[in-house]
Simulated scan of single mutants.
Amino acid sequence: MSFGDEHGYGGDSGRTDDGFGGTGQTRTRLPDGRNGDMYGGPRRPARGSRSLITVVGVVVLLIAAIAFANRGGGGDTSGGKGAAAEPGAEPTAATGVKPVTGKNGEIPSGFARNEQGAASAAANYAVALGSDGMFKATSRQDIIRASHDPATAEGLLSDLDRAYSPGFLTNVGLNEDGSTPAGLTFVSRTVPVGTKVTEMSSTTATVEVWFTGLVGLAGEGSTKPVTATWSTLTEKLKWIDGDWKISSSSQTEGPTPVNGDNRASTADEIAKAVQGYGGFTYAR
């Protein structure tokens, strides 16, 4: 579960592309040593037939709906110090600040009112918004209300309810109510790789979250295999009632690394892995 690609994020949320992961074949490009380029020359252009799973990606429907909030103008972030000039990476490491212990439903809450707290909130929200809970109405409402500015949450939910229509859910391989067909395991996860705070003030923050996402149906007989995506989510946060909340978001594709030589696992292996390994929260 993607937070643009060629199909866009707006009115294309309910596309009915049949690919959902393409042919299932894995192609590996090996270095050919031309001009000393370890990647084998210029990168090939993206395939024109983007699969449905890439359209959905990790959180594309969320971002499509967040356009509702953007149309309203969003919050005033002019009080920030502005974009940082080539900020350096800040590794996730012990900082002396205790991680948050509160929860709003299943989502951590009570983030610190500083750069660390904003980065942690953005990463945690990316995980929640990319989860399989977004595909069911009740849990989707809980996730949106826990992570978003109340001023935009209800309008966002209305857009999402239309986006996650019964027709869309069946197109991604689920039942009309968002449940998973018997014998299969639905996978939708976001795994943050790193965060970068680009703007910061006492009441607003802008945080970029670079992440990889897994989405698809695992299990014997699945026609929509689990695939991986890479994206960067930019979240504009506001300090509201003692915590950071999302006021608006946008997404870009990549940076995407070159695929390694790992053998693609079977559908059964993926299903067992998803059932056996729980996801993480990123409070620090």
Rank of each mutant, 00 (worst) to 15 (best):
N35W: 09
P255C: 06
V172D: 11
G79H: 08
G110N: 00
N70I: 12
D37K: 12
G8R: 07
R44I: 08
A121Y: 02
A85G: 01
T204V: 12
G133A: 07
S179R: 09
I63A: 10
A146H: 00
T203I: 06
D12L: 02
G278L: 10
A121D: 06
P192S: 11
G14W: 00
L156I: 06
T212Q: 14
N124H: 00
R189A: 05
T101D: 12
E208A: 13
P225E: 03
T16F: 09
G110T: 02
D132E: 14
G213H: 04
D37T: 10
A271C: 03
G96M: 11
R162V: 12
R47T: 10
P150K: 06
A119D: 06
I240Q: 07
P181I: 08
P181D: 05
V207T: 04
T234R: 06
T266L: 11
D37Y: 08
K103D: 04
A146N: 00
W230C: 11
T92R: 07
T227C: 03
G72H: 02
L129I: 13
R43A: 15
F211L: 14
A137C: 00
T54S: 10
Y9M: 14
A163F: 05
S120R: 01
V60H: 11
A283W: 03
L160I: 05
A218N: 06
G254K: 08
S201C: 02
F111Q: 06
M134I: 07
G167P: 00
R15Q: 10
T206L: 13
L62C: 04
A283G: 14
R140S: 03
L30M: 13
G219W: 01
K236V: 12
G117V: 03
T152K: 02
G117L: 04
R34P: 00
S222P: 08
K98R: 15
Q275G: 15
G219E: 03
D142L: 03
T206C: 01
Y164C: 03
E106T: 14
G194N: 07
A84Y: 02
D32C: 11
V127W: 06
P87D: 07
W210M: 09
K224Y: 00
L157V: 10
W239I: 02
A94E: 14
I143Q: 02
G41F: 01
R140V: 01
G105E: 00
D17F: 12
D76H: 05
A283I: 01
R29D: 13
Y125M: 09
V274Y: 15
G10S: 12
S131E: 12
N175S: 13
V187W: 09
V187S: 10
Y125P: 04
T204W: 08
S13F: 14
V226C: 05
